[in-house]
């Protein structure tokens, strides 16, 4: 501590130690905050159509188009250390061969931002929320209770298929809600079905088993029934 340089180095070195310890405390503080997530997810409509993976492809594949209702209360996932929650719905169905693991594909997802996160265009805005792009304090307050969603007859963001290219007439499909909590400091955590400490497992969040129907003939399908989520929501999460 005899000269300016040595004092600067010593003080800054101890600052990094303090910063690390505070960060560790913040990361651990999430594990003592109770979580009681609940969700209700219902199948609304499912159709299977033939299509191409991209505009130039000559390959035809079958795509399942699943509409759903979703009601969630995930407000307990948002603690002071939560930056955002990546919410997604997977459709899971067993493979044709018993030796192979089941297929699982995401049909819809959303980035639920915590109130402490700055606005970003990829964040999800539930229908009816005011425009938070303008840094209007009133509008910011309106999203002070994140994680509560009520979606009716929601279009999927993604039509799904698998490597076989055939998904028609598959049975035992289940829609499941999943999420990934992304904190400001600390480890990522995922949706759990069973209790873990003061964190309760997800209540509900799973549909009854259902089957994919046969392929719909092109002429009979109404085009507007097969659209994925459009506009801002459809583009969210995709790089510009």
């Amino acid at each position: 501590m005899h000269s300016t340089l040595v004092r600067a180095q010593t003080a800054f070195g101890f600052f990094t130690t303090v910063a690390f310890c505070v960060a560790a405390l913040i990361a651990l503080s999430g594990f003592v905050s109770p979580q009681t997530p609940s969700a209700d997810i219902k199948l609304r409509n499912v159709q299977v159509v033939r299509g191409r993976p991209n505009y130039y492809s000559t390959k035809k594949e079958e795509y399942a188009h699943i509409k759903f209702d979703l009601d969630t209360d995930l407000s307990t996932l948002f603690t002071w250390n939560t930056k955002q929650v990546f919410l997604y719905i997977t459709a899971t169905y067993p493979s044709l061969k018993p030796s192979e693991p089941p297929s699982s594909a995401i049909i819809w997802d959303a980035i639920l931002a915590s109130p402490s996160a700055p606005w970003h265009q990829n964040q999800y805005e539930a229908p009816g929320t005011p425009d938070t792009r303008k840094s209007d304090p009133e509008a910011q307050k309106a999203i002070a209770a994140p994680g509560i969603l009520h979606l009716q007859n929601q279009r999927p963001k993604y039509q799904i298929t698998d490597y076989t290219g055939k998904v028609a007439n598959r049975s035992d499909v289940v829609l499941e809600l999943g999420w990934n909590v992304q904190p400001w400091v600390g480890a990522l955590t995922w949706r759990g079905w069973s209790d873990w400490g003061v964190w309760k497992g997800l209540k509900g969040g799973r549909t009854e088993r259902f089957g994919f129907p046969g392929v719909k003939e092109r002429v009979k399908v109404q085009k507007e029934d097969l659209g994925t989520a459009k506009g801002g929501e459809g583009n969210r999460g995709k790089p510009a």
Binding site: A19, V22, W184
Partner: peptide, 18 residues
């Protein structure tokens, strides 16, 4: 530095504002 670290955690946790 120790006081600042302790205060920052306690105040942030109390106000739930990181």
């Amino acid at each position: 530095l120790a006081t600042a670290g302790f205060l920052s955690f306690v105040v942030g946790y109390m106000t739930q504002n990181i």
